[in-house]
Write a protein that binds this DNA or RNA. Structure first.
Lengths: 224, 224
DNA sequence: GTGAAATGATAGTAATACTATTATTATTTT
DNA sequence: AAAATAATAATAGTATTACTATCATTTCAC
């Protein structure tokens, strides 16, 4: 797949000051992602990040209200970016089955570690979603955050996949649930493979098996 | 289903002092569960719990190393308890399809709010798993915690379901992944229904739809 | 070159996540 | 019933977290 040079428009409620508009902001996002991945979200603090990028805690707080908002920002970026990739990769494909296969492949195959898109590393964002993705919404502030449309990128992607599912089988009753299952499971099963392998059927970490598993689930369910 | 009066044997690594063996220990677990559900895990602290049950922080720390261990304890209890319910409810059933349907129903239908089993409220444990379940393993200490067998109850249940899946279709290649998908999705979809409904296909919160969705996924996948 | 905006430096607060010490109760043993 | 033991309460203390506030300095836009 060719390199996409995409600028993703982020929801303004995600930040206090747009991090894309300054060198410091970009460093906060970029290195913040790296540091969350390194320490885990629980142990990550703005103070540690400040030290890492040689600035002050107070400066970071001018960009993001708190570390949870930074997390949502990064995860929203990932889902937006993935939607672009999806749109791009299914362009010109008419068969919805092939479209879904292309999407599954985008979900399962880890992005190239070296590739740097925009100011965020796609590979790092993928790791983040795998490890911390559900922490974005598993909080008491879901409803509020949802009203602020912070989860819009995820919901948009889900809706897009649901539409392709409907193309496959217009009579299928649960296209949205199947789409969210697909999104959730690709990351969860990957996490299990790598960390709790007895919950899966892959001794070795094999994307091919996960792909097969997901394809089977989706297409058997959609069989008429 | 008749009331089960079960005593669940908990892994000793989950606690420093067995909370079942004292009145204070039971209060920590019991009211801790309530308080986590009330505040959300992030805002829950041992200090707040101490105030709630009229004891001191230090006393709680004698039972649990930290709040994450208490979370794992509660979640492990839930999965162990659910396995008992599963074993009980599929007893005397020979048809694996009926067995799986029974399990799906146990996963989807919320337990009775009033019923108090042992010293832990089953309904509250169910809410906890729905909101905080994945936080038990989505940490940098997964591998360590897994070595200490803290996730054994979850893995045991998954393995048991996988075996029934194999009974249904001995040739199916991914029984464990399908089982963990079933466990994860029943709670995730419920959470979505209640908090991010556009990710699902239920406007109203309907267990019947979720049941149908899950049954369809499982049985279509297992069709020969 | 001036003014505005962004950043840095520094400080401070309340809460969190613990650990330690000693005193006081309960419980068990003899 | 007294002594020994164990559990809990009371209290204090530390380092870190999650912020907020103030003011000086640098950078940038016009």
């Amino acid at each position: 797949m060719m390199q996409l040079d995409i600028r993703i428009k982020m929801n303004e409620k995600l930040y206090l000051r747009n991090p894309e508009e300054s060198a410091l902001g970009k460093r906060i996002v970029n290195r913040g992602l790296t540091l969350i991945n390194k320490l885990g979200f629980e142990d990550f603090t703005f103070k540690k990040l400040a030290k890492e990028i040689d600035t002050t805690e107070a400066s970071i707080y001018r960009y993001f209200e708190n570390k949870h908002r930074l997390l949502i920002y990064l995860i929203a970026w990932y889902w937006s970016f993935l939607e672009y990739k999806v749109v791009f990769s299914i362009n010109n494909i008419t068969d919805p089955v092939i479209k879904l296969k292309a999407i599954i492949s985008l979900l399962v195959v880890e992005p190239d570690k070296k590739m740097r898109n925009d100011f965020i590393s796609e590979w790092e964002a993928y790791q983040l979603v795998k490890w911390e993705g559900s922490k974005a919404y598993l909080t008491r502030s879901v409803t509020r955050d949802n009203k602020d449309r912070l989860f819009k990128p995820y919901k948009d992607l889900c809706a897009r996949i649901a539409n392709i599912i409907k193309e496959c089988n217009p009579k299928y009753k649960f296209p949205n649930s199947l789409a969210s299952t697909m999104l959730e499971m690709s990351h969860a099963q990957k996490f299990f493979m790598e960390n709790l392998p007895s919950l899966t059927d892959s001794q070795k970490i094999e994307d091919s098996k996960l792909t097969l598993f997901l394809e089977e689930v989706i297409f058997k369910v959609l069989q008429k």
